[in-house]
Structures are given as structure tokens and as C-alpha cells.
Nucleic acid binder design. Structure first.
Lengths: 188, 188
DNA sequence: TCGCACATGTAACGCGTTACATGATTAC
DNA sequence: GTAATCATGTAACGCGTTACATGTGCGA
């Protein structure tokens, strides 16, 4: 029996977002972009089809909202059934973690390229880490204000802190690595 | 024109491994398991078909080796053409990084589960990080001995160091996070 | 003789990205 | 008027995991 165990996490990501408040697909996207993008993102091609699936499964309900301008959007609400589905996943101990870090793989094969290329890519990695760190900083400030008193707040602060310390560790490592490689370059 | 830009990194991972020394598919698997598994792994279902593809593309050559016992295995060697393909990738600046961390996503939605469940999953994350850290420690000791003088060594040490500092940062964060959550639990 | 490690593959199938597609409103 | 943002989808297609499949050699 071919019993594929790999299941999409997109459903749970959507359902979780809807526990914050009822949202449209577009709002979910924006929330992810401004809140979870340093550890989770969804593409349009996943988001909208899975919203439809969740609707079929009665895990969400849909309400069409018309703004003053006349623009329409579909606001999704999580149902009791949806909350159960989310719970089941949240209580599962298994957290599969993708371990494909292209930057690290290239560095592992670094002997096959010039030292300068290795340094350049570490510098690029540092730049990215700094961008993430400042994104995280921004999120931190925003939610500390906006979400005071929210039951989500302590957990959001924890994810923010994790992002921060991990990015900082990468930056610190990167700076040391560059020094090491510059020594190596000189030594030749 | 539907021009899918997503390309598999499996080829490059294989070619890179073959710059260390000629290896069989099984050996590549073992090497990954004992050297890169904290940032890169390949499944059988990817490895063997891609070895065949690389052979067709003349990026590798294949030599059948027969041991004393009579057991056979296919030893693959990287060709000049293969080295070029690898180089092209190594010199590319783009490093796509998968940002889907299920543990973090669950924690972000932590308000939807008991505090104890959040603590338990952080503890599990710490256990995993410790396992990785000790795997990395083992790799570190092994290669410091075995690979002295190898041009790969400085780069391998750098990847090891990165793994170490990132795992340590996660552990430290996790321990603090548990303290915070225990306070939260008491406060209720 | 029995199980484990060695060794190499294939098939199914869902996942997830990218590009395609369309249209409305708002701000400059 | 025109660009950006809001807003919602679909289609193609390759990727990658899991399970299936098979066989050898060695040590306990």
C-alpha cells in the first residue's frame, strides 16, 4: 500500500492565521509577509486552492465583504471543525524540518572556487541575515504596541526572539569566517 | 513561455561530493549522512536517477569495481565537463533558502494549545539540536584527523562551526523560552 | 541461519513554485 | 492616465519523498 506520509502544512498555516482573526486570502498573504516570512511563507498557487479545500471540508466558512468602493473580497472564518484540525496538528510531536541550505552546501564545496568567491557569498549571506534581523526588529516593535494583551503575544515574542538570536549567530559566524578566509588567502 | 526556474540542486550536491574522491552512489549517501546531514541530505529516489542523468550528460564517468568477495559497485568519477557544471553553480550568487520551519510555525500559533504542549515541543527541539550538535562535534574530530592538509578542510571546518553556533543559539534560546513559558503558566 | 549492512534502482504521487490570467481601486 | 496595490484565482511542470523491489556478502 503506497501510503504517502508527506502532507502539506499549508492548511494548518492558513487555519492558524484565521485564529488571529477572520481574513481574506490576500490578508493572510500580507500577514505572513509581515509576520512569519523569516520562517514561513506560502505562494499564491498554494494559498488559494487550499482555502477552497478548507471550505469544502467545512474547516472554514466564507463571507463576501463589499467595501464602500464596491471592491469585493472573501473573508474566511475558522469553524469549530477547523479548530479541531488545527489542534490535532499542533499537538503532534513530529516537526519535519527542511534541511536544504544551499549556501552551506556551496561553502562545503568551497575548495572548488576562488577564496574571493567564498568571501563574497558569506558577505551576501550576512546582508540577508541583517535584512531578516531588521525585518524581525520591525515586527517586534509593531506587535509590542498593537498586540498588547493578546493571547498570541507571548508566542509571537518567542518566535521573534528565536529569529533574532539565530540571525545574530549567523552574522557573528560570518564575520569570523571572512577573517579566517582572508588569512587563508594571504597565506598562499 | 513557461520557463520554470526551479532546478534541482541534487546534481551539484553529487558533483561536489565527487570532487572529494570518486565514489559509488552508496558512498555518496554515507558521506552525506556523516558530513552534511545537518544542512543537506538526498533521498535514494533522487540520488540514483540523477547519477544516471549526470552520466548521460558526460558530467561523470562510471567504472565498475569488483571487490574480492565479488560484490560489485559503480564508482563514479567527475569529468572536466562535470567540474565546469559544478563551477557555474558555485559561482552563482543566488542561494535559495527554504524557509519552512514547522516547529516555528506551531510555536507562532502556540496560543491555540496548552502551555505544556509548547514547552514539550521546545524540549523536543532542544533534544534534536543537541543531537545535531554532537553529530557536528563528531564530524569535527574525525575530519581534523583524517583530512589534515586537504584543501577541503578549511571549508569543512567553517560549515562545522556554522552548524555549531546555530545549534547552540537555538538551545540557549530554547532554555530561556521554557523559563518564560513556565512563568506564564504560573501566572494564570 | 538470520539479520544487518552493502548496494542499486523504480514507481507513485502529492507538493510547491512560477508563470499565466484577469480585473478593480486608489494615489500621485 | 498610469502605476501600484488590492484581490483571486488556474495551469504546467519539475521536484522530492516514500514505498516498493531485489540481490549480495559477512559476521554472530
Amino acid at each position: 500500500m503506497r501510503n504517502s506520509k508527506k502532507t502539506s502544512k499549508t492548511k494548518f498555516a492558513i487555519l492558524g492565521m484565521l485564529t488571529i482573526e477572520p481574513m481574506s486570502g490576500y490578508q493572510i498573504k500580507q500577514t505572513m509577509l509581515t509576520s512569519t516570512s523569516y520562517f514561513w511563507a506560502e505562494s499564491d498557487g498554494q494559498l488559494y486552492p487550499y482555502l477552497s479545500k478548507l471550505l469544502e471540508e467545512n474547516a472554514v466558512t466564507c463571507e463576501i465583504e463589499t467595501s464602500e468602493g464596491g471592491r469585493q473580497r472573501k473573508i474566511y472564518h475558522i469553524t469549530e471543525r477547523g479548530k479541531e484540525v488545527l489542534q490535532d496538528w499542533l499537538l503532534e510531536d513530529e516537526n519535519k524540518f527542511h534541511i536544504r541550505n544551499e549556501f552551506m552546501l556551496k561553502l562545503f564545496f568551497g575548495a572548488n572556487r576562488p577564496v574571493a568567491a567564498n568571501i563574497a557569498q558569506i558577505e551576501e549571506m550576512i546582508r540577508k541575515a541583517r535584512r531578516y534581523a531588521s525585518l524581525i526588529e520591525g515586527i517586534s516593535k509593531r506587535i509590542a504596541k498593537e498586540e498588547a494583551g493578546s493571547p498570541h503575544l507571548p508566542y509571537w515574542l518567542l518566535t521573534i526572539e528565536q529569529g533574532k538570536v539565530v540571525e545574530e549567530a549567523k552574522i557573528k559566524w560570518g564575520e569570523e569566517a571572512i577573517k579566517t578566509l582572508k588569512q587563508l588567502e594571504k597565506g598562499k
